[in-house]
Design a protein around this nucleic acid. Structure first.
Ligand SMILES: [Mn+2]
Ligand SMILES: [Mn+2]
Ligand SMILES: [Zn+2]
Ligand SMILES: [Zn+2]
Lengths: 150, 150
DNA sequence: TTGATAATGAAAATCATTTTCATTAACTGA
DNA sequence: TCAGTTAATGAAAATGATTTTCATTATCAA
């Protein structure tokens, strides 16, 4: 399942990227949270541990991880992007979202994932063949009004 | 299906909002396009027809329509929000997205919507009961690499 | 027609994200 | 192990989308 180092190192090296302290730290931080963190959130935590890390690097790293499919980037409508490790071994499992259009509250749900899995993999297969697209992830969100807002 | 005025007027009045020229024009513009338009896109077209309309009002109107569930707001990762009329009678039907993580290309797809519809309405029913949430819309997106980028 | 007030638009402010560029550090290969 | 190549970094400045402010205008109920 892995080489010498942690799983993600192979992914980076595979694309010619270097293993650096900032990258290590940022991934570690993502492992330790199960929130939907913003770049600034990650920066604060990283900076706390290693004050030499800059916000720019956090953005660059999150972006790289997103392109690699290691991290999933979300926009929940509050003006800043949110990030989550896709398959967080320490944290939460794959899930989907319920988003209130008024107060922007986000709820994770993991119910009914079996049915979803079936649906998703079926669709994914057909789409990737038809559009010649390599699908690595998906997102399903339901929008509406939460209990408090309706 | 409607009162005196167009369908959307009832929706606005229902929440105590006024029917104004800018709002009329913005909705008309949304009807006429089947792109994923940004606020600036809408502004340019609106301004062309009625130069007194301001960008601020475009933002405010799109936001209001989004909260009403008349418009759906997307973030495809290129830094600006995109909007689409949810059930555009003149334009495209409900669809989902295939998004390239590298080049940010977006493809709409409408295949397999029957299966999706079945899945979605089943899940939606269970979720809205369990979380006491009024669900008005949903989005399904698949992420990966397009033909050119992989 | 009028008054109360929601809506508007111009300009300024915000603030998340990106760019620039000089410096540092990770790997390669001798 | 060491030096050279060059990707990666961070500080500061720039960008650019969206929001706020506030004086003015327009909608609509009475
Ligand atoms: Mn989540
Ligand atoms: Mn679309
Ligand atoms: Zn809410
Ligand atoms: Zn692509």
């Amino acid at each position: 399942m892995r080489g010498r180092g942690p799983w993600w190192q192979d992914r980076l090296q595979g694309m010619g990227a270097r293993i650096t302290a900032p990258r290590e730290l940022i991934i570690e931080i993502l492992h330790e949270t199960d929130d939907h963190v913003s770049a600034a959130d990650v920066y604060v935590r990283a900076h706390q541990i290693n004050p030499s890390i800059g916000l720019t690097t956090v953005y660059r790293t999150l972006d790289m991880l997103t392109q690699l499919g290691i991290v999933q980037k979300f926009d929940f409508g509050d003006g800043k992007a949110r990030y989550e490790l896709v398959n967080n071994p320490n944290g939460k499992k794959h899930h989907h979202h319920l988003i209130c259009l008024r107060c922007k509250t986000i709820m994770d749900y993991t119910e009914f994932l079996d049915e979803e899995l079936e649906f998703v993999s079926k669709t994914q297969g057909k789409l990737s063949k038809k559009y010649n697209f390599t699908i690595t992830d998906h997102a399903i969100s339901f929008y509406g009004l939460c209990e408090r807002c309706r």
